[in-house]
Design a protein around this nucleic acid. Structure first.
Length: 761
DNA sequence: CACCCTCGAGTTCA
DNA sequence: CTCGAGGGTG
């Protein structure tokens, strides 16, 4: 294996260097290939040629936006494709590739040059369309009949995939209308819709097959399948894959004198022939319009059914195409603006275990840091040991990484081609990395392993305390992840949450945590680093942060420094004081009873009115509450059966926590929510609503008598949509559910749906 | 008993 | 955000 130089994607300064090197490599490889295939000349050894290709692959792995379908790593001779399987087809007119730009600045430079070259009198308009991440295809029609469908290949010669293309929905064998030219080539892109691509990869994973790195590879792989001795299962699978492909056309070739003057008219013509054209294109007569288009789709890449890896900008006037001409590779009248990639490859350095607040052991991937969709990712969850096995990743693998829903990093699978034998399998540890207890399944046959040391495992105590402070719990400002770390062993005094409300400023002041970074599982590493740094500097001790203490008076030469509480410490004590009288349901959530989150807790609190009543209830009485079934009832009973749990309740009560709803008439009463303008309505709030936090908006819905919900379904009555809304708005439209703009949220709260509906389209 | 909702839990980074 | 699983309903 040609072990390439380490390449870092996070350094933008390196990008230009990588791009230049990739261009040079591409040129050299194509030159060697041309000599080999066309002139039967071997200029370098096979080994040297392979080294060049590997180097290019390594660069493309680090900067996927450099890997286009015309890269030598993608075309004949690069990926070990067996081109003999498909008959070669010589395109009637050469299929060009496009030059790329990677910034608005470069795009403007290109546009300025086009305007200059077009001449002073030419009015240039810009046709902008989405660059589909798919596979370029050339359809040849003779007098309206499809005679062949071929891949792009090297631009001159492609592969005949007519058989398979004919099974793709929407590609006509015979063009609609009449007056077709004796010969025309229609250029387009075959692609996998994103939803189908995700399904396909899930199926591949389940079947133990390799995942496709991107929709382009998936489209290519599907289209190159051969119907042969694979049996009924193979044929069926092939049919299923082909039926999921789609195509959009975006150009013509080999037609010397088309009866149109602009590219946009070409699209209208193609549409009239019954060919699928994209609805998402626009023509602008100034460059700013094109820039706006590029920026718009940069933010809405997921609002179309196919993957977009950029925007193609073409000069609309066909006359200018001729006068501008082309270089040897690409036309001068079109350019591809490439967005940064959302799917990348990086090295899997290791797999470690995290312990959650319920004790569940979760393996997560430690990755070579890499830039994906706008942020540097270092870790990604692997859920459990089964998922690790199913994904088939080994420690040391290059892995394909993406951000699911643009947020959560997800490992899709290993890049098998880049294995060199040094990778090793992950072995699930048998001991809790935080407390050393033996991990075991909670029940016979469970996949998840758990740390059984519920009471004392520092990771679990820390997790529970963080949960208590969270928005869905007691919502204590100043009690987040960092404070939870500081308050629990090995740094703080809380070995369980029972003592939370007994904390005083004096307890907080002595706390010290290692100064570097944050994050529970990095602590060990950080301590080591802090210690070694301290040793190097000749200091006796590692450097520590004191989150709850600050120097009040600087030390004079011979006097010791004086300390006082930090504002964080004072805030925490004040917030804890306030928390003692928060709603009963919040206190219930804070007990960390399994399956009891904000919703179940609200139901229980409203029905019973006090913790004593809940504690006194039988399983049947608990399950009588709407939204509570046998499992939750059993979890509640079990929770109260454990001594140290009861101790939490008692110590909190002794510290002034109010375990009841004042004025509640007793069990069984008070099940009616407040009635108001929104009675009986289920309301989903998505995006930003001015004047409200998400929590606050939900609270407001409850006060108005409505039921807030996080997901849109048939049962949803109305969806409030603010700026930044995502898939929920689309879902609401799909289901025909009324949508209310955020500005009118207040009207909705005051007057109910009837105040809004007559004015909603 | 087979659905379809909804809820809970885990999760990443700025 | 996504997954899996609890709970309610036809």
């Amino acid at each position: 294996m040609a072990e390439a130089e380490p390449i870092r994607a996070s350094d933008p300064a390196d990008f230009d260097a990588a791009r230049a090197e990739a261009a040079a490599l591409t040129e050299r490889i194509l030159e060697l290939r041309e000599a080999y295939y066309a002139r039967d000349t071997t200029l370098v050894s096979d080994g040297e040629y392979d080294a060049l290709v590997h180097r290019l692959e390594a660069i493309e792995a680090a900067w996927p936006q450099l890997a286009g379908q015309d890269s030598p790593t993608q075309t004949v001779g690069g990926g070990g494709l067996d081109s003999t399987l498909f008959a070669p087809v010589v395109h009637a007119e050469r299929m060009y590739s496009l030059d790329n730009v990677f910034s608005i600045e470069e795009f403007r430079e290109w546009a300025a040059k086009v305007v200059r070259d077009a001449g002073p009198d030419a009015g240039v308009s810009w046709l902008c369309e989405l660059k589909i991440d798919g596979l370029a295809i050339n359809l040849r029609y003779a007098s309206g009949e499809l005679v062949s469908a071929a891949t792009r290949g090297d631009g001159t010669t492609g592969e005949d995939v007519t058989e398979n293309v004919l099974r793709i929905a929407g590609i006509p064998r015979r063009l609609a209308g009449s007056g077709h030219p004796p010969l025309v080539e229609v250029r387009g892109e075959i692609y996998f819709p994103v939803a189908a691509f995700n399904e396909l990869n899930a199926e591949q994973t389940a079947a133990g097959e390799r995942v496709f790195a991107n929709p382009r590879n998936a489209a290519s792989g599907s289209l190159r399948q051969k119907a042969d001795g694979k049996g009924a299962r193979g044929a069926d699978l092939m049919e299923r894959r082909l039926s999921r492909l789609r195509m959009l056309v975006h150009g013509i070739g080999a037609w010397p004198d088309p009866p149109v003057a602009t590219q946009s008219e070409v699209y209208a013509l193609l549409g009239s022939w019954g060919l699928p054209t994209s609805p998402n294109f626009r023509v602008f007569d100034d460059v700013d319009g094109a820039v706006g288009f590029i920026e718009h789709y940069g933010e809405h890449r997921h609002s179309v059914e196919h993957e977009i890896d950029g925007i193609v900008v073409k000069v609309d006037e066909l006359a200018l195409h001729d006068s501008l001409g082309a270089t040897s590779r690409a036309p001068r009248w079109a350019i591809a603006y490439k967005y940064p990639p959302e799917q990348v490859q990086t090295r899997l350095r290791g797999i470690e275990i995290g312990i959650g607040r319920t004790g569940r052991a979760t393996p997560y991937a430690v990755l070579e840091p890499i830039l994906v969709a706008g942020s540097v990712v270092r870790r990604a969850t692997l859920h459990n040991q089964d998922v690790v096995r199913v994904k088939g990743v080994l420690i040391g693998d290059m892995v394909v990484l993406r951000k699911a829903g643009d947020v959560i990093p997800e490992i899709l699978g290993p890049v098998l081609e880049l294995r060199d034998g040094s990778e090793r399998a992950f072995v699930m540890p048998t001991e809790c990395p935080e407390c050393g207890a033996t991990l075991a399944p909670a029940k016979e046959g469970d996949i998840d392993l758990r740390c059984p040391n519920t009471r004392a495992c520092p990771a679990q105590v820390r997790g529970r305390i963080e949960h208590i402070g969270s928005r869905g719990g007691l919502d204590i400002e100043g009690l987040g992840e960092a404070s939870a770390i500081a308050l629990t062993p090995p740094y703080g005094p809380l070995d369980t949450e029972a003592g939370l409300f007994d904390l005083t400023i004096d307890d907080l002041m002595p706390i010290e945590v290692p100064v570097l970074g944050s994050g529970p599982d990095e602590i060990v590493e950080l301590e080591a680093r802090a210690a070694s740094e301290a040793a190097e500097a000749g200091v006796a001790e590692a450097r520590f942060d004191t989150p709850f203490r600050k120097v009040v008076r600087p030390a004079r030469k011979d006097a010791p420094a004086e300390f006082g509480p930090s504002s964080a410490a004072e805030e925490l004590i004040v917030e804890l004081e306030k928390a003692r009288r928060k709603d009963l349901w919040r206190l219930l959530v804070s007990l960390n009873i399994r399956h009891v989150g904000p919703v179940a807790a609200r139901a229980l609190a409203a029905y019973f009115g006090s913790l004593d009543a809940i504690r006194a209830a039988s399983a049947a009485e608990l399950a009588a509450v709407d939204g509570v079934g046998p499992i939750i009832a059993e979890a509640v009973l079990e929770w109260f059966g454990i001594d140290w749990h009861v101790e939490i309740v008692e110590r909190w009560a002794a510290a002034g926590v109010q375990w009841s709803i004042p004025g509640h008439p007793g069990p069984g009463a008070g099940i009616e929510g407040p009635s108001g303008p929104l009675s009986g309505l289920t309301v989903v709030v998505t995006g930003a609503v001015e004047g409200y936090t998400r929590e606050g908006a939900e609270e407001a819905v409850i006060v108005a008598g409505g039921k807030p919900s996080g997901s849109v379904s048939k049962k949803t009555s109305v969806v409030v949509v603010g700026p930044g809304a995502g898939s929920k708005e689309a879902k609401a439209l799909e289901l025909g559910i009324p949508i209310v703009p955020a500005e009118r949220f207040q009207e909705l709260l005051d007057g109910g749906l009837s105040a809004i509906v007559p004015q909603v389209e």
